[in-house]
């Protein structure tokens, strides 16, 4: 995204630079990985790595909008699990898959609206609300399916989740992601709604005084987040061929990690979608690389965690260093003649 310059605010240059840093890291990991293990660079592995990222990448899109707007939705992985359980339960009950999809997506809307209404009508902080619904929705998933696993979904749908778009190495879910990413980037960086999101995230009062419908925008965002999480739940179910209540446990943290790694400010008001896409890819490639080299999952989790801390810390260090440099620059010429 060439958006950085004017997207958010005061220290835009800093985020533009961070985007570049993430993109550079991405290239390093890519070529370093290819050198490290011969399987990494081949098309099959890359398209597997991409496909494996599908749900995280999809959910990261509305999450970016939410975080820019100063909100967060921690219930996404539970919505994904609930969607998966609902898909399984309905399929088990003999529903047609064509009917199941819209019903599950509608359930996602309802989950998102519940989050949104609690935040906008009751004025509760989204962090608290969605920690609550994270538990609630996961609980509902267990009510629906218990510890059962439902499998054997229709082949043509399973194929949609697992195979590539003909003639390309791109899995269908990734193609969908690319499409939605373009739409999201346009909304965030080129429409009035995007401008409103940055304004709400940076200074909610000023946005409200400017006639922006703050509550409505937040409500819609939570609903969209619910829809995308539910749809990702269907994709997840088909990809693994198994509907379970515990599908996607902990996935919300990977999503938020990717968003923050992409340079979006957790306090709202700053960030670019380009950065987030780079963040998602970086996390995906790193995971894949560690997996190929038989690194234990514990270590993978440590690496992701460290990367996240570095991503939040680095932009601040860059700023601090810049200020120190400016101070020295103004002191030195003065010190010399004295």
């Amino acid at each position: 995204m060439a958006e950085g310059r004017t997207a958010g605010g005061l220290d835009l240059g800093r985020f533009l630079r961070w985007d570049v840093v993430v993109a550079a890291l991405l290239i390093v990991v890519f070529f370093g990985g290819a050198g490290l293990s011969p399987d990494f660079g081949n098309t099959d592995n890359l398209s597997f790595a991409l496909g494996d990222l599908g749900e995280i990448a999809l959910i990261a899109l509305p999450m970016t909008l939410l975080v820019v707007c100063g909100q967060v939705d921690l219930s996404v992985a539970s919505v994904l699990g609930l969607a998966s359980a609902l898909t399984g339960a309905l399929w088990d009950a003999g529903w047609a898959f064509e009917t199941i999809v819209p019903v599950v997506v509608l359930a996602g809307v309802v989950c998102g609206l519940i989050n949104g209404l609690l935040v906008t009508r009751l004025g509760l902080p989204s962090l608290a609300v969605t920690i609550g619904t994270l538990s609630l929705y996961r609980g509902l998933a267990y009510v629906l399916l218990g510890t059962e696993a439902i499998a054997e979904f229709p082949q043509q749908y399973a194929d949609l989740a697992t195979t590539n778009v003909p003639g390309t190495p791109v899995p269908y879910p990734v193609a969908l992601f690319v499409l939605l990413a373009i739409v999201t980037a346009l909304v965030l960086h080129a429409t009035g709604i995007g401008r409103s999101l940055f304004a709400i995230g940076a200074q909610e009062d000023a946005a409200f005084y400017a006639g922006i419908r703050v509550k409505r925008i937040k409500l819609v965002l939570f609903a969209v987040s619910g829809v995308v999480a539910a749809f990702a739940g269907i994709v997840y179910t088909l990809r693994y061929g198994s509907a379970r209540a515990d599908n996607g446990v902990g996935l919300e943290l990977a999503v938020i990690a990717a968003v923050l790694l992409g340079g979006v400010d957790f306090d709202g008001g700053k960030g670019t979608l380009g950065g987030v896409i780079a963040g998602v890819l970086l996390i995906g490639l790193l995971r894949n690389l560690l997996m190929l080299n038989d690194v234990a999952t514990e270590i993978q989790s440590i690496v992701t965690g460290l990367l996240l801390i570095v991503s939040v810390l680095t932009p601040r260090l860059i700023t601090a260093a810049g200020q120190a440099r400016a101070r020295r620059r103004h002191r030195d010429p003065a010190a010399a003649p004295a």
């Binding site: 004017t6 605010g9 005061l10 304004a199 200074q203 008001g269």
Partner: peptide, 30 residues
């Protein structure tokens, strides 16, 4: 009154997001 971290031009435009839409091309783009 203002979003302090936002640019001068964007602060000025914040009250007229509708009328800043492009005359041609896709509807909602600014």
């Amino acid at each position: 009154g203002l979003v302090m971290d936002m640019s001068i031009e964007r602060n000025m435009g914040l009250t007229q997001l509708r009328s800043l839409r492009r005359a041609s091309g896709p509807g909602p783009l600014i």
